[in-house]
């Protein structure tokens, strides 16, 4: 974790660095002595968190936060100041926390916990972004072997007994540790369509369709096994729309 402490008072910076080091011994901590220096540092390298004092000569902490929010991937912001008068404005600038100096150890610990929760969420989000970009999905071939599947290799996704599987040509059904809903969101833009309560189908693989009963159909996929996937009545209109039927 990389942290930038911004305060125009040296004792305040040193004290916060000392406290942070006690709680986060592995963190890389740097200091900036005013708003302008903070922005320059944040421009040069990526920080995870920036602690901002509010009253500083030149750019004050609120102005620094406003500028940071205009950036693509801003660090998380924690205000550390001697009075609570700017708290409302600080949270409007989506600050992660607002702490009042002198800072108590357990109060700082709360801030750190909040940071860690937030970074877990961000990691999850980044994972989502990576798989969307790369169009890949991890699946379990066995208890100790995993396959990184390309979306284009997947024929359909099936949910059964609260477990989710990916169907491919080369492998038997592979377990995927994700929910059908998540995958629908993630794979939808890549040509996967929900066709049944328990099925997400790769539209590029659909070859034939035959009527089943009471308005439902069976889709036959382009595979050696001529795999069949049900199209339930509920999803027919979406399927029509998507395939121009």
């Amino acid at each position: 974790m990389k942290i930038l402490i911004t305060d125009d008072e040296s004792p305040a910076r040193e004290e916060l660095e000392f406290m942070l080091k006690q709680q986060l011994p592995t963190a890389e901590i740097q200091q900036a002595c005013d708003g302008t220096e903070a922005l320059r540092r944040l421009d040069e390298e990526q920080f995870d968190i920036v602690f901002l004092d509010i009253q500083m000569p030149g750019l004050d902490g609120l102005e620094v936060a406003t500028k940071l929010l205009e950036q693509q991937n801003p660090p998380r912001i924690v205000f550390a100041t001697a009075s609570s008068e700017h708290a409302v404005e600080a949270f409007r600038l989506s600050a992660l926390d607002y702490i009042v100096k002198p800072i108590a150890e357990d109060r700082l610990q709360q801030t750190i916990e909040r940071l860690q929760e937030d970074s877990d969420q961000r990691d999850g989000f980044e994972k989502l972004l990576w798989s969307r970009r790369e169009r890949k999905l991890w699946a379990e071939a066995s208890e100790d072997r995993w396959v990184l599947l390309d979306f284009s290799d997947i024929q359909y996704i099936q949910a059964q007994d609260k477990k989710v599987y990916a169907a491919t040509d080369g492998y038997p059904l592979l377990r995927v540790r994700r929910t059908l809903k998540e995958l629908e969101q993630e794979m939808g833009p890549q040509g996967f369509l929900r066709v049944h309560k328990g099925y997400l189908v790769n539209l590029r693989k659909v070859k034939e369709m035959s009527a089943w009963f009471s308005g439902s159909y069976t889709l036959i996929l382009d595979s050696a096994k001529k795999t069949e996937v049900p199209l339930s009545r509920r999803f027919v209109s979406k399927f029509r729309e998507a395939t121009g039927w």
């Binding site: 008072e9 004792p11 305040a12 004290e15 000392f18 009075s83 009042v100 100096k101 002198p102 800072i103």
Partner: peptide
């Protein structure tokens, strides 16, 4: 009050150093 809390914060640093 801003002066008071900043002063206390400063003193806290010197207590240690």
């Amino acid at each position: 009050p801003h002066f008071l809390f900043n002063a206390l914060n400063t003193i806290r640093y010197f207590v240690r150093t």
